[in-house]
Design a protein around this nucleic acid. Structure first.
Length: 244
DNA sequence: CGTTTTGTTTCAGA
DNA sequence: GTCTGAAACAAAAC
């Protein structure tokens, strides 16, 4: 379910836990639970699609993957992947992946890659794209979390439509101007996604993802499974140019 | 009810 | 070592 902007909104649900102490850690997750016990939650952050629970001595990273869910002071009947019992509240994660990281996150994360971060750096992203393999297609480039942390399949499709670029275009064939536009829109659209999502208006603002026809020229939207991971690409074959 | 999906990691084999 | 594709994981909406 979640792309970067959704994760950022979800992370607000955890703010109530800040200041609380971890009393008990359980669940199916393979991770050293002892390390979390007794730690006080200092801060909750995100990087791309990662939740980051910052404690004194370490950080817990949780990723919802495609189907992950969490419940605060509530649970399912199935065994959680990870359950954290804090002083006053409890959080249960299902179908997630998680890992322990050092307290100093600057060792781990490139904040300039996060499209929603104040540290987002379009020039740095552009530079990374210039170093990509020669046959990389734009659909894959946009899903690369090292370059565009937080961008998922919906954002990918919408960014390409905004920039009028066909998803199967070769990255190296884009004009310099088009490349710049693509990078810029990756962040722009992600911020729009965030605001729309906040107001529950996301779906009605999408232009291609799961849409039938293009507003620009009434062309039927096409659907293809494209790229390294075969994710769905929705695009308008008329207004989105194929660069090869 | 089978299919599909807002995602990533792992691992065998080349 | 490095690349690649398939498999694994997992849950609910359609």
């Amino acid at each position: 379910m979640p792309e970067g902007p959704s994760i950022l909104l979800f992370s607000e649900d955890f703010h109530m836990l800040v200041g609380q102490v971890v009393l008990k850690v359980s669940g199916a997750a393979k991770l050293d639970k002892k390390q979390l016990k007794g730690q006080t939650l200092k801060q909750v952050k995100t990087w791309g699609k990662h939740f980051l629970f910052c404690f004194e001595d370490l950080t817990l990273q949780v990723h919802l993957l495609l189907f992950g869910k969490y419940y605060i002071n509530n649970k399912r009947t199935t065994k959680p992947k990870l359950s954290l019992k804090f002083s006053n509240d409890e959080v249960n994660f299902y179908a997630t992946s998680q890992k322990l990281l050092p307290a100093d996150l600057d060792e781990v994360y490139d904040w300039s890659a996060d499209v929603l971060s104040i540290h987002w750096n379009a020039a740095a992203a552009r530079k990374k794209l210039k170093q990509a393999k020669a046959d990389t297609i734009v659909a894959d480039a946009l899903l690369n979390q090292d370059v565009f942390a937080g961008v998922g399949n919906i954002i990918k499709n919408e960014v390409l439509h905004r920039a009028r670029v066909h998803p199967a275009s070769r990255l190296s064939a884009l004009t310099p101007r088009k490349l710049t536009e693509l990078v810029k829109e990756a962040a722009n659209f992600s911020h729009d996604f965030l605001e729309w999502k906040r107001k529950n208006q996301l779906v009605k603002n999408l232009k291609v993802h799961k849409k039938k026809s293009c507003e620009r020229d009434s062309t039927s939207i096409e659907k293809e499974y494209i790229g390294r991971t075969g994710r769905r690409a929705f695009f308008c074959p008329t207004c989105q140019k194929l660069y090869t």
